[in-house]
Design a protein around this nucleic acid. Structure first.
Length: 600
RNA sequence: GGGGGUGUAGCUCAAUUGGUUAGAGCGCUGCCCUGUCACGGCAGAGGUUGCGGGUUCGAGACCCGUCACUCCCGCCA
């Protein structure tokens, strides 16, 4: 054995024992005579003491030559620290190991960035951290995140196992299914001109598993999407993928609420309230301006469409009378102190959604200061006062236009205002609270104006509400899908649906609603339609973003913080320099010819 | 594809309106120090200011291009 104890193990009980510790030199304090070396491993750290008066000169010389992060093995005897020198900051702070021998198992060069000082390390640029990820991961904060992720994954597996689910692996080498996200394409030697594609999700396989009689499936599934990255999006990521037979929506809610309760309890000891509230898509948009509302704070949207139909403010009146038009407002309570710059930022945000400008009212010194209130009649003012409960110091923001756009504009401004107001101490957003909820009754279909056709809001296997099926052909807009999203604190954690299991309904959606030509539907989904001929049980499922979930548990805003080896915003790995070129011979074997050499 | 931000020593950051030899803290190197734990003290080394052009008597700063990182929009069935 190279070591007898780990570095977070020794206590007063061990005093007098001969021990061997292995680890990294966390810090070395050379006082000229005595030298203290903190040895760190993944469990913690322990102080070792080198005393020249009792050590052979060559051993002491090795201790003098130690450098940060060199890997060492220290043998010695545990003793209590002299009175007054205990260190309450670390778990092993009552004792120290009087070194008898030290071996340098591997020396380390000076580090590119500090890893012993949490404050300094937290400020190091992400670029540097990613380039030297193995050093970054040595930091206790990152070690804790790796453990948190592991514990969460374990809780997921145990929970589903207890409920009789089977974890089934599905292929990574799949084929292209071009209606969804852009895919990573994989060439291969045996099939010139043909390509695998990496799955954007195991959607089709998990439905086939239901036809296969698995009944309860889950998988911690790796998924791939060749789309642009964000703080919460990586080109490869992990989903908790779930599918169940003989269920309706309520069964799925129950299973997933139980899962999340278990994970939150196991990973951070929190009891989350159940059942989760449910909001229809319509209500979520109307009240919060988004389909993934953060309900930890108020600042809800008000609808003023009816109040402005006859308004003297012609722009609002016109929109309010239009089919599908809406006039909405948001009371940013206490934000009348808004600066010019903040107003410009908000105007730019509104404009990015297609608004022409941003109308507002500042409530200061008992009066409404605004470029537009002079056009308002008493009726509009009364409606505003009543629905927005306007008080001194408030800032009212308006959005008018197509209902969805008006909601989305204010939804975005609501988040911005909340962020600013929280920094100013005028709004509390509890960090330790998790507001889970279900958003339900999404429209099954959305209309693509440019392509002049309907497309699936979620995916084409989502079942319509049974009572809406007759509307499919005449008024597709009105059809609601059996789709649901689970949302927490403004983050879309996951989504799923009850699937279509009748071949005829599926064919109707493909051919008559989505207008996918039969030969193409056959080529892409033929095997599914065929499978559904042989006894497909009613089924449904969901997929949760495991990285996002872990980031929430860790209290970090980027999923890169909970992925061991994440990629940059351009999809590169700074440590391994991937993606990289391949040599001519490989290309030839794959029957691929480059039209242009790779950039760089 | 579009918009914003950043790029100066190994790391984190300064550098007035464009003006002397580009500074500081940490780290590193050397010396001193026997109870420290962010040890302390003294001294020292360390720079293609991301890269390429331009404006100017003079550019880290201004202009154009480019690269990298980051945030957002589009995109993510």
């Amino acid at each position: 054995m190279k070591r007898t104890h780990h570095c977070n193990e020794l206590r007063l009980d061990h005093v007098g024992q001969e021990v061997v510790l292995c680890g990294w030199v966390h810090s070395r304090r050379d006082l000229g005579g005595v030298i203290f070396v903190d040895v760190r491993d993944r469990e913690g750290r322990t102080q070792t003491v080198f005393d020249p008066s009792v050590l052979p000169p060559e051993v002491f010389a090795r201790a003098e030559a130690l450098r940060s992060e060199s890997v060492v093995q220290v043998a010695g005897k545990v003793r209590p620290r002299p009175e007054g020198t205990e260190n309450p900051k670390i778990d092993t702070g009552q004792v120290e190991v009087v070194a008898r021998e030290v071996q340098v198992l591997n020396p380390a060069d000076p580090l590119p960035f500090p890893i012993d000082d949490p404050e300094a390390a937290a400020k190091v640029s992400e670029e540097t951290r990613l380039r030297y990820r193995y050093l970054d991961l040595r930091r206790p904060e990152m070690q804790q995140r790796l453990r948190l992720r592991h514990r969460a994954a374990l809780a997921v597996r145990q929970y589903f196992d207890e409920l009789g689910f089977l974890e089934v692996e599905t292929p990574m080498l799949f084929k292209s299914t071009p209606e969804g996200a852009r895919e990573f394409v994989v060439p291969c030697r045996l099939h010139p001109g043909l390509f695998y594609a990496l799955p954007q999700s195991p959607q089709q396989f998990k439905q086939i598993l239901m036809v296969a009689g698995v009944e309860r499936y889950f998988q911690l599934a790796r998924c791939f999407r060749d789309e642009d990255l964000r703080a919460d999006r990586q080109p490869e990521f992990t989903q908790i993928d779930v599918e169940m037979s003989f269920v309706d929506r309520e069964n799925i809610y129950e299973v997933i609420e139980g899962l999340l309760a278990r994970v939150w309890k196991t990973a951070c000891g929190l009891d989350i309230p159940r059942p989760f509230p449910r909001l229809s898509y319509r209500e979520a948009m109307d009240r919060f301006g988004t389909d993934k509302p953060d309900t930890r704070f108020g600042l809800e949207l008000a609808d003023l469409t009816d109040a402005f139909r006859e308004s003297g403010f012609k722009l609002f009146a016109k929109i309010a009378r239009e089919e599908g038009g809406a006039v909405k407002a948001l009371n940013a309570k206490g934000f009348a102190c808004v600066t010019q710059g903040q107003m410009e930022t908000m105007t730019a945000l509104a404009q990015s959604f297609g608004a022409r400008g941003l109308a507002y009212i500042k409530v200061e010194n008992g009066e409404w200061r605004s470029p537009i209130t002079k056009f308002f009649g008493e009726q509009e003012k009364a409606a505003l006062q009543e629905r927005l409960r306007i008080e001194e110091g408030d800032l009212i923001l308006f959005a008018a236009g197509p209902w969805q756009t008006a909601c989305e504009i204010l939804g975005r401004l609501r988040l911005y205002a909340a962020e600013v107001l929280e920094k100013q101490g005028k709004l509390q957003i509890p960090r330790d609270r998790f507001d889970f909820l279900w958003v339900v009754d999404f429209p099954l279909l959305s209309y693509d104006k440019e392509m002049n056709r309907w497309y699936s809001s979620h995916h084409p296997f989502t079942a319509p509400l049974p009572e809406d099926i007759p509307l499919l052909k005449e008024s597709p807009k009105k059809v609601r899908g059996q789709h649901y999203d689970v949302v927490v604190n403004g983050v879309e954690l996951g989504g799923g649906s009850i699937r279509i299991h009748q071949r005829e309904v599926q064919r109707l959606i493909f051919e008559e609603v989505l207008r996918i030509p039969p030969d193409i539907a056959q080529a892409r989904f033929g095997y599914m339609l065929e499978a559904f001929r042989y006894g497909a049980p009613p089924h449904g499922g969901i997929a949760l973003g495991f990285d996002r979930m872990t980031a929430l548990l860790a209290g970090v805003s980027s999923i890169r913080e909970v992925i061991a080896f994440p990629k940059t915003a351009k999809g590169a790995c700074l440590m391994t320099q991937s993606p990289g070129p391949v040599d001519e011979r490989q290309l030839k074997e794959l029957h691929i010819e480059l039209k242009a050499p790779p950039l760089k």
